[in-house]
Amino acid sequence: MDWLALSDAEWTAIRLSLKVSAVAMLASLPLALLAAMALARGRFWGRSLLNGIVHLPLILPPVVTGFLLLILFGRRGPVGAFLETYTGLVFSFRWTGAALACAVMGFPLMVRSIRLSIEAVDRRLEQAAATLGASPAWVFATITLPLILPGIIAGMILSFAKAMGEFGATITFVSNIPGETQTLSAAIYTFTQVPGGDSGALRLTLVSVVLSMAALLLSEWLATAAARRVSGT
C-alpha cells in the first residue's frame, strides 16, 4: 500500500486547493447574496445585463475567463494595478489569484441557488413581520435569511465543489506554480505530463473523488436539516 502514501508536494497541492476553495467560497458569498437579492427582487434598468454578466463564466470557455482576469487583474491591468497601489493586494501568480479565478467560476452557481430560494420565499411573511414592528433590515435578518438558508448552503457547497475542480481559468490566470498556485487539478495535470507520473495522478484523483463525495454528502445533510427547520416540523 506504499503507493498510496502522499508525498509532501502532493499534500501541499491538497492543502492549497482546500484553502483556495474555502477562501473563494467565503469571499464570494456576500456579493452573491447581494446579486441574488438584486436579481430576485430588484426592478431596475440593466437587470438583464447584470443577469448576463453573472452567468457569463458558466458559458465562456474557462480559458477566456482566465485570460480576461489576466487582463483586468494582472499587475498591469486596470483593476490589478489599482488594488496593488491602494490595498497591496496582488492577484497575478499568487494563490489569491487562484482564489479569485475559482470565485468567479463558482459565482453563477452560487447566485443561482440563492436566487431560486429567495424567489421561493413567501413575501406575505415578510409583510407580516413588518406589521409586527420589524424594520426592513430586521425582516431580512429574522425572516428572509433563515428561510433562504438551505439555498445559501447549497450555493456555498456548489461553489466550493466548483473551486475544487477548477482548472482552465486558474492555470491561464495564475499559471501552475507548485506551492503557490498549483491546485489539485493542476497537480494532476502536471503528473500526467511527466513520465512515471501515473501513480501520483491516481493518488490525487482518489483524494479528489473522496473530497467531492464528502462535500456532496455534507451538502445533502445540511440542506435536509435546514429545510426541516424552515418548514417548521
Binding site: R124, L125, A128, S231, G232
Partner: peptide, 9 residues
C-alpha cells in the same frame, strides 16, 4: 391576516 402567516421557521 386571513391565512395566519405564522413564521414557519
Amino acid at each position: 391576516f386571513q391565512e395566519g402567516r405564522l413564521f414557519p421557521h
